[in-house]
Nucleic acid binder design. Structure first.
Lengths: 161, 161
DNA sequence: TTAAAATGATTTCAATTCAAAGTATTGGAG
DNA sequence: CTCCAATACTTTGAATTGAAATCATTTTAA
């Protein structure tokens, strides 16, 4: 059930690939939401914890940029994690505009416990593709994503580096 | 900036492909949200209009299934479109539980005008990949998506048939 | 036929999300 | 030094979401 659109071949091809890409990512996300929800985390919250886990404390701005989320959204998600004592904020002494977000000991324990399960689930899901296929998929997505960021958007903007 | 995770090679490979897939689809979606927003439509609303445009009137259930959205969500999005007189509901006479959603003349004009622009924008974005690459990407995503739906989820579930 | 189960839609609730406006802080130009 | 623009974050408003509960209707089974 690809595109139901009639038009020039390049357009049909592009729409077709686009729809399949969207469906795959939505289906994948849906498959992960269930298990994550069962431990009481949303994908957004998990993303924050995971990023802090792998990269260490970050400012909200850096977090939002890594996760491709707007600033306003980042604030809210961090709010919700802070309410549950999984992360804490500390205003930077050098630049008092910045807020550094860090994992609490509780948050660290949490993500240490959850992440392996999450990784295993992703590995299982991606197992539908052979190793070379996974690599090729990654390569194509990376190429596409990078090309798009050269003509980027306002607030969510991902300046490189 | 791939996975920052150390682990068995298959796991690193899967996580890496996963992240790139997610980023590509999110970046793509972000690139389309701006223009769509400027004409006053959210991606969800656009999805409903487009689906009705290409497939004709559908029940809410069918709509939700096509768009991989929960029933509750479908109701709300259709509510919002109905408020703007872009679609209308009609209870099915044969099975009075079902509600058929159709485009109004106004909705039809709207989607006829918007869709070509949207398609052009997608075509342009996907232009970052060569034609064969687009096809390969589509193939891989389709394979992945289909495999996932064999072990699906509850309410959004995509029962085959 | 009647009771129970299943189905389609809706409502409710909490969280996410973006955009846009607002606030505090910093750093630079005059 | 004093504004002023840029930066980092927060708030507000509207829409999207999924999950779970509810209601009406249909179908099935006893």
């Amino acid at each position: 059930m690809p595109t139901h659109h009639k038009g020039p071949a390049p357009e049909v091809r592009a729409l077709d690939a686009f729809i399949k890409l969207m469906r795959a990512s939505e289906t994948l996300l849906a498959a992960l939401r269930g298990p994550l929800g069962r431990v009481g985390l949303t994908p957004g919250q998990f993303g924050v914890l995971e990023t802090l886990f792998h990269l260490g404390p970050l400012t909200e701005r850096e977090l939002g940029r890594k996760l491709l989320r707007s600033g306003g959204n980042t604030t809210v998600v961090v709010d919700n994690l802070e309410r549950r004592s999984l992360v804490y904020r500390a205003r930077s002494p050098s630049d008092r505009r910045c807020v550094t977000v860090s994992l609490t000991p509780k948050g660290l324990r949490w993500i240490r416990r959850i992440f392996p399960l999450h990784a295993a689930r992703i590995t299982e899901a991606m197992g539908a593709l052979r190793p070379e296929e996974q690599e090729e998929l990654g390569r194509l997505c990376r190429k596409l994503g990078h090309a798009l960021q050269e003509g980027r958007s306002p607030q969510t903007a991902a300046s490189h580096r």
